[in-house]
Design a protein around this nucleic acid. Structure first.
Length: 213
DNA sequence: GGGACGATCGAT
DNA sequence: TCGATCGTCCCC
């Protein structure tokens, strides 16, 4: 086990190119300490959105609105947005000040606060004899960008928060994953993005069962 | 003021 | 494959 285990990331961690940072996020934990309890999961799937040049990005063409403004600030903060009128997605702001890039977290492997996550997701708790949720049930908690926000209790109140301090932060779990353990491919649900549809900017941990469908 | 749309989810 | 559901954006 690494001596880095359990440490919260510091600001310098975010000073790397967005595609590199996206892969470095894989394997790290996203944690939310809420009044009702702490919930966390290991990041197993992400997508990078590279600002003005990327037709799939909310900041395409330098679009600057109340919704997108946090992406123009320093990296390591939370960009959350509403989607389809009923879901929220969580992103890590990336890129230097003035360069509006972000990394969408698409799926987690639950690690802490699983009963709390199940309650938030309103999933009936079917347990094994040892008290753990069945794998099939644990997957339903966080295998999608909207699901993981609901499970962790992330809301628009967390818009812009600093991910190097509680209540929402990133925690190291060991050494970075080797490239051989990482798969990549086109991003999901961006049919409107023309040539950007094909960019292989979705990254996930090979073979991990908690990756979204 | 109003219309169109969406980095999703869950049921069919 | 499709409908739900509403904040955001942009145009009128």
């Amino acid at each position: 086990m690494s001596e880095q285990y359990g440490k919260i990331v510091d600001k310098s961690f975010f000073a790397q190119p967005t595609l590199t940072l996206a892969k470095r996020l894989l394997g790290m934990e996203l944690v939310h300490e809420a009044p009702e309890g702490t919930a966390a999961g290991r990041i197993v799937e992400v997508e990078a959105y590279l600002g003005p040049e990327d037709k799939a990005a909310h900041s395409y063409g330098g679009r600057l609105t109340e919704r997108t403004k946090v992406m123009y600030g320093p990296p390591g903060h939370a960009y959350l947005f509403h989607i389809y009128g009923m879901h929220i997605c969580f992103n890590v702001v990336s890129g230097p000040v003035g360069k509006p890039e972000a990394i969408l977290v698409r799926a987690l492997e639950p690690t802490q606060g699983i009963p709390l996550m199940a309650a938030r997701r309103r999933i009936a708790v079917l347990q094994e004899k040892d008290g753990r949720l069945k794998l099939r049930q644990r997957k339903l908690l966080t295998n999608g960008p909207g699901k993981l926000c609901q499970a962790l209790g992330l809301t628009m109140e967390h818009y812009g928060c600093d991910l190097t301090v509680p209540p929402v932060y990133l925690r190291k779990t060991g050494e970075p994953l080797p490239d051989e353990a990482i798969a990549s491919g086109p991003r999901i649900n961006i049919d409107y993005a023309e040539e950007a549809r094909e960019y292989p900017w979705r990254f996930w941990i090979k073979g991990n069962p908690f990756v979204s469908k």
